[in-house]
Computed example of a mutant assay.
Amino acid sequence: MRFFRIIRQTLLNDNKIRRYLVYAVGEIILVVIGILIALAINNVNQKHKIHKKEQVYLQGLRKEFQTSRIKLVELIKVNRSNLNGAKQIITFIGADSIPSEKELSTFLFSTLAFDIAFNPNNSLLNEMINSGSLKDISSDLLRIHLTTWISTVEDISKQEYDQELQRERVMSVLSGDKYSIRTAYELNGAINNQLGLPRMKKHTSNMGLLSSNEFENKLFLFISSAYATNVNHYQPLLEELDTIIELIDSELDN
């Protein structure tokens, strides 16, 4: 800046105060412009860094939510199988034609063998929420959906817990002294094919379940809970997953 000092000194020595003031103002303006340019460049760089960071987050979130969607779709299939099996058993109760022991075992197995529990991949989302990095997501709408996702999943788990209770109550009847879980599993092929246990020489019949009011009542409550899980919880959750994935895709660079 020696050049500018020489100019200022020359103007002062020549007693040209007015020109000196004009020059001083011009120099201040140049300095301000320089600062503004530097701030603008720094702002652009910061925005670029934030955008790059956001893209990394979006890529990770997209993978997480796609994996969660695959899990949910499979879980819906399992729960639908549980529901359909239970509904078929209900149709046997009081019907003119009754199923064979093997047919009943098949439906008992498909209804009661598998529990349900949605376990979404939320590791990155939880990390973002805990670290305050959710603010780096520029889309307000996406940020709202991500924020409410955790509470939505927690609500789903409460419904799943209720359904598991109903399932256990149905199982409690089947596991009593009169009936046999092993018969249901073995005649369905699960004992030999999956568990590797030897076959029984004589099976305890489960046909009496079809005339048990306790079994019918508990099975009906299980059907109601399984239906509510699919219709009131899983289907809306699947729609929410699709919405979040769509919003993420709209924010990702092509």
Score class of each variant (00 low, 15 high):
Q194T: 15
E101I: 03
F220R: 01
T67P: 07
Y227P: 12
Y23P: 09
K158W: 00
I89C: 08
L146F: 08
I89V: 03
L75Q: 13
S172A: 04
S139V: 05
M200N: 06
N188L: 02
M200C: 05
I156C: 08
I17Y: 12
F3V: 12
D140R: 14
Y57S: 08
N230F: 07
L58Y: 04
N230R: 04
Y161G: 09
L146R: 08
D242W: 13
I70P: 14
G196C: 02
R167Y: 00
T183R: 00
L104K: 11
I181Q: 13
L61Q: 09
T10G: 15
E251G: 09
K178G: 01
E103C: 02
E214N: 11
Q163K: 03
P198F: 07
I76S: 12
E186Y: 04
D177G: 02
S138W: 04
S110D: 08
I248R: 15
G94V: 12
G176Q: 07
L58H: 12
I156Y: 01
A40D: 14
D249F: 11
S212N: 02
R8T: 08
T243H: 11
L36W: 15
L83V: 01
I89A: 00
G132V: 05
I6Q: 14
Q55L: 07
G189M: 12
H233G: 01
N119H: 03
A226V: 00
E27M: 01
V22I: 10
D249W: 11
I29C: 05
T243A: 07
N126M: 03
N79Y: 02
G208V: 00
P99G: 09
R80F: 03
P198C: 11
Q159P: 00
R62G: 10
L72E: 01
Y179R: 12
L141C: 13
I41R: 11
E103V: 07
G85S: 07
A38M: 10
L241W: 01
S68I: 11
Q59C: 03
N193V: 09
N254F: 04
D242G: 15
S224P: 04
A228S: 13
P120W: 09
V170C: 02
L165F: 02
A228T: 07
S123L: 13
K102N: 08
E101A: 04
R18E: 15
Y161T: 01
S131W: 04
Q166W: 05
R2A: 13
E127F: 07
I156A: 06
V25P: 07
L108K: 03
S225N: 00
Q194W: 13
I244N: 11
T10W: 12
L12H: 10
D136R: 15
I248V: 09
F220E: 06
S211T: 07
D140S: 13
E214L: 07
S139C: 10
M200L: 15
L30E: 01
S97H: 15
E160M: 06
N119L: 09
G85R: 02
G85D: 04
A228M: 03
V56N: 15
H233S: 00
I244T: 11
I28Q: 14
V231M: 06
S151W: 06
I7C: 10
S225C: 03
A190S: 12
V56Y: 15
V153N: 06
L237S: 08
Y161M: 06
P99I: 08
N15T: 11
V44N: 14
L36I: 14
S131R: 08
E216A: 03
N213W: 09
I98L: 12
T67A: 15
S212Y: 01
